[in-house]
């Protein structure tokens, strides 16, 4: 409670104390610009991180629960082998459901490559069987061995081969997004430190006069810290609003294809960008405070 009160008092400020430091044009503009730009970039890094996290989860969940059996056999044997595979699956623990794809479904799958009028009955296209697993899953090695005995033309693809690299890549993208956010925060801190140092150097006489009349370090530092914190807050607010607007204006997933599906915020995720301005203010607060006390420590 007392901490919240202290934050409110800090934000409300002291009109007389605020006036002791003269307005500094260049460093003020630099701080606002840097905060706005970095907040804008953070919105995108956050969107990327959340989207890739979601993607990794989707791929992991969706693919982990399904497998495909491909049946290739000479003419006349395909249907027999499909029946044999279905029989094997019916007695395999961990298989929740299994069904052979219809001709129309197979045609739809191949349509992007061969067009809509594919003559499936005249082409040696393998039959596909979709297998839905129970949460416990099945024993892939055991199933393969049984299929080899009952339906030699059947090949089990449990998606592991290409699922793992995809999930790994998505996980890595999410990590990169988070690292980007940390780097942006560090860069913001460094830039604000530079701006604060420039302002402290430009106001050397102000500091000397304040010291002469008995101002404590905390008083002098507060005059600078509050100013830079509020500038960073204002800049980050503008940058966040523009960033969020840009994400909101991105094309819908359906129009852009699967790869960009979900590159944005969904539902309560829209609250995440609005944590950026207070965090930017916190970074500015710590950076300026550190710079101010370091400068004041050098002078008695």
């Amino acid at each position: 409670m007392s901490r919240a009160l202290a934050i409110l008092q800090f934000l409300a400020g002291d009109a007389q104390a605020d006036r002791v430091v003269p307005p500094t044009g260049f460093t003020a503009r630099l701080t606002v610009f840097v905060s706005a730009t970095m907040a804008f970039l953070t919105v995108f890094a956050l969107a990327l991180s959340l989207a890739t996290g979601r993607l990794a989860e989707n791929w992991s969940d969706a693919l982990a629960q399904s497998a495909t059996i491909r049946v290739s056999a000479p003419d006349g044997q395909v249907e027999d082998q499909v029946i044999a595979v279905m029989d094997v699956l019916a007695t395999t623990p961990g298989v929740a459901d299994a069904r052979a794809l219809t001709d129309d479904e197979q045609r739809a799958l191949l349509e992007p490559w061969f067009g809509p009028d594919l003559p499936l009955d005249t082409l040696p296209v393998p039959r596909l069987i979709e297998v839905i697993e129970t949460p416990e899953g099945f024993d892939a090695a055991g199933l393969r061995a049984r299929l080899a005995g009952e339906a030699p033309g059947a090949v089990l693809d449990d998606h592991t081969r290409w699922r793992e690299p995809l999930v790994r890549a998505a996980d890595r993208l999410r990590t990169l997004g988070l690292v980007s956010i940390l780097l942006i925060a560090a860069t913001t801190g460094a830039m604000i430190t530079l701006a604060a140092n420039a302002a402290l150097a430009a106001n050397e006489q102000v500091i000397r006069v304040l010291r002469l009349v008995g101002a404590r370090d905390a008083y002098i530092a507060r005059a600078f810290v509050r100013r830079y914190t509020l500038r960073a807050l204002a800049g980050a607010l503008v940058g966040t609003l523009f960033g969020a607007l840009a994400i909101w204006l991105m094309p819908e997933a359906e129009a852009t294809g699967n790869f960009l599906t979900g590159l944005g915020f969904r539902g309560v995720e829209w609250l995440w960008p609005f944590t950026i301005p207070p965090l930017a203010a916190l970074v500015a607060f710590m950076a300026t405070r550190r710079a101010a006390f370091a400068t004041l420590k050098e002078r008695r």
């Binding site: 006036r19 002791v20 003269p22 307005p23 006489q205 102000v206 000397r208 006069v209 010291r211 002469l212 009349v213 008995g214 101002a215 404590r216 370090d217 905390a218 004041l296 420590k297 008695r300």
Partner: peptide, 29 residues
């Protein structure tokens, strides 16, 4: 310490030859 020195300076008034002021404030301020 520096804060103690600040407290000491509240008990010592100093007038310099080159009197330093905060030029953006009024004389009264």
């Amino acid at each position: 310490g520096r804060d103690d020195i600040a407290m000491v300076r509240r008990r010592i008034g100093v007038v310099h030859q080159d009197c330093q002021f905060l030029d953006h404030l009024t004389v009264a301020e």
